[in-house]
Measured scan of single mutants.
Amino acid sequence: MSIQHFRVALIPFFAAFCLPVFAHPETLVKVKDAEDQLGARVGYIELDLNSGKILESFRPEERFPMMSTFKVLLCGAVLSRVDAGQEQLGRRIHYSQNDLVEYSPVTEKHLTDGMTVRELCSAAITMSDNTAANLLLTTIGGPKELTAFLHNMGDHVTRLDRWEPELNEAIPNDERDTTMPAAMATTLRKLLTGELLTLASRQQLIDWMEADKVAGPLLRSALPAGWFIADKSGAGERGSRGIIAALGPDGKPSRIVVIYTTGSQATMDERNRQIAEIGASLIKHW
């Protein structure tokens, strides 16, 4: 067993022997301040990774656009098919120029040779490549099948209805392509620590998230040296922004954090800054 596999296998073990965790309302004060600064709703939840206990939450059962955070769930569904012998990570998928959609920095470079399922998941999570996500959605049967996968996990809230990039439209009061912070946090925890996926697939999923290259201005910008984070960000229309993450000190994750916002007129930089400040408060009061 590799060191990384050992780390993920012992996530519940280490967490069980940690000192009790206590909620700190100071972080919620910052979440509410972010709402004021952005002029928009902000949803927040913080779960203990081992027990699933909610440590703090704000608007945990209000719907927010998922945006690209759905790509972690998508690759979880792909990995479940791999575990069941219905898919192979090494299978190569070929596609054409007509398949390319807006923001496809990886797939646009491989029109000639195609990409493997493993490479597509890596591109979808680490670079948020939209064509990679659409190609992977095709392998599982489309958005409705991802929703069905989530329902089978016990998540009857999260739903995907459309493809990239239309799913980022974020129309107010439109339930399409949305989740709730509580539902997303619980589902992410199941994917990373539950028995739904094999140990190898859980490790692969967290490795992809740990290698995320496009979430630097968010929670990662607030992390002290030595902290662990595996995350996936999302951005959408109407001032929408979000991030889902597993993080913790001492090089291992111990909490799940989900943050979503929508309806702001603020710039992307300002949305990023507010999420980073929430992260800084979380870490300060850990």
Rank of each mutant, 00 (worst) to 15 (best):
M1C: 01
M1D: 01
S2C: 08
I3E: 06
Q4Y: 13
H5P: 09
H5E: 09
F6S: 08
F6Y: 10
V8Q: 13
L10A: 13
I11F: 11
F13Y: 11
F13P: 07
F14T: 11
A16T: 11
A16H: 14
F17R: 05
F17Y: 12
F22V: 06
H24W: 09
P25V: 11
V29D: 14
V29M: 11
V29T: 12
K30G: 05
K30I: 09
V31S: 03
V31H: 01
V31Q: 01
K32I: 11
D33R: 15
D33V: 14
A34T: 10
D36N: 13
Q37Y: 15
Q37R: 13
L38Q: 06
L38H: 07
G39K: 15
G39W: 08
G39M: 10
A40G: 14
A40F: 04
A40N: 08
G43V: 00
G43Y: 00
G43W: 00
Y44S: 01
Y44H: 03
I45D: 02
I45V: 15
L47M: 12
L49I: 13
N50C: 08
N50E: 14
G52C: 04
K53E: 12
I54M: 11
E56K: 12
E56G: 13
S57K: 12
S57W: 11
S57H: 12
F58G: 05
F58C: 08
F58R: 09
P60H: 13
P60K: 14
E61I: 10
M66Q: 06
M67D: 11
S68D: 00
S68K: 00
T69L: 02
K71T: 00
K71E: 00
L74C: 05
L74T: 06
C75S: 07
V78L: 07
L79P: 00
L79W: 01
S80W: 12
S80H: 14
R81P: 00
R81C: 05
V82Q: 06
V82P: 01
A84T: 14
A84H: 12
E87T: 08
Q88K: 12
G90C: 09
R92L: 12
R92G: 06
I93L: 12
H94N: 13
Y95I: 11
Y95H: 05
S96F: 11
S96N: 14
Q97H: 14
Q97I: 13
N98H: 14
D99A: 10
D99Y: 07
L100D: 02
Y103T: 05
P105N: 05
P105F: 05
V106H: 08
T107M: 05
E108L: 09
K109I: 11
K109G: 14
K109V: 12
H110F: 11
T112C: 10
T112G: 13
D113M: 10
M115H: 03
T116F: 04
T116G: 04
T116R: 06
V117D: 00
R118V: 10
R118S: 15
R118L: 12
E119G: 10
E119T: 06
L120M: 11
S122I: 13
S122D: 15
A123E: 04
A124T: 11
A124K: 00
A124P: 00
I125S: 03
I125R: 00
T126E: 12
T126V: 10
T126F: 03
S128C: 00
D129R: 00
D129M: 00
N130F: 00
N130I: 01
N130V: 01
T131G: 15
T131R: 02
T131Q: 03
T131D: 01
T131K: 02
A133P: 02
A133V: 02
A133C: 05
N134E: 02
N134P: 00
N134W: 02
N134A: 04
N134T: 05
L135W: 02
L137V: 08
L137H: 03
T138R: 15
T139Y: 07
T139F: 06
G141D: 07
K144M: 12
K144A: 15
E145P: 09
A148C: 13
F149C: 07
L150K: 00
H151E: 12
H151Q: 13
H151A: 14
N152A: 14
N152C: 11
M153L: 14
G154C: 06
D155T: 01
H156Q: 13
V157A: 12
V157G: 09
W163S: 10
E164S: 00
E164K: 01
P165I: 08
E166L: 14
E166Q: 13
L167I: 13
N168A: 08
E169V: 11
E169R: 11
A170R: 08
A170L: 08
P172N: 10
P172Q: 12
N173L: 15
N173F: 13
N173P: 07
N173S: 13
D174C: 06
D174F: 03
D174K: 03
D174N: 06
E175R: 12
E175Y: 13
E175L: 14
E175C: 12
R176L: 08
T178D: 02
T178C: 07
T179E: 00
M180P: 03
A183I: 10
M184E: 01
M184A: 07
M184Y: 09
A185Y: 00
A185D: 00
A185L: 02
T187G: 08
L188T: 09
L188W: 04
L188H: 04
R189I: 07
L191Y: 07
L191N: 03
L192Q: 04
T193A: 15
G194M: 08
E195W: 06
E195V: 08
E195Y: 07
L196E: 15
L196D: 11
L196N: 15
L197E: 04
T198W: 04
T198E: 11
L199F: 11
S201R: 06
S201N: 09
S201Y: 05
S201A: 10
R202F: 03
Q203Y: 09
Q204P: 02
Q204R: 10
L205N: 01
D207W: 12
W208S: 03
W208M: 08
W208C: 03
E210I: 15
E210K: 11
A211M: 10
D212G: 07
D212N: 07
K213P: 04
K213F: 10
K213M: 14
K213D: 03
V214E: 05
G216R: 08
L219G: 03
L219M: 09
R220P: 02
R220A: 04
R220T: 03
A222Y: 09
L223G: 03
L223F: 05
L223A: 10
L223M: 11
F228E: 04
A230T: 02
A230E: 01
D231P: 04
D231R: 03
S233W: 02
G234K: 00
E237R: 13
R238S: 11
R238I: 08
G239E: 01
G239K: 02
G239C: 03
G239T: 02
S240R: 02
R241T: 05
R241V: 04
G242P: 00
I243K: 00
I244C: 09
A246R: 02
L247T: 06
P249N: 08
D250F: 12
D250P: 09
D250L: 12
D250G: 13
G251W: 07
G251T: 10
K252V: 14
K252W: 09
P253L: 10
S254Y: 10
S254N: 13
R255V: 06
V257S: 03
V257T: 06
V258Y: 01
I259M: 08
I259F: 07
I259Q: 01
T261A: 09
T262L: 07
S264E: 04
S264T: 12
A266R: 13
T267A: 13
T267M: 11
D269E: 15
E270T: 14
E270W: 07
R273L: 12
R273I: 10
R273K: 15
Q274H: 12
A276D: 05
A276P: 01
E277M: 10
E277S: 10
I278N: 00
I278V: 09
A280T: 11
S281K: 14
S281Y: 15
I283Y: 15
H285R: 11
W286P: 02
W286C: 01
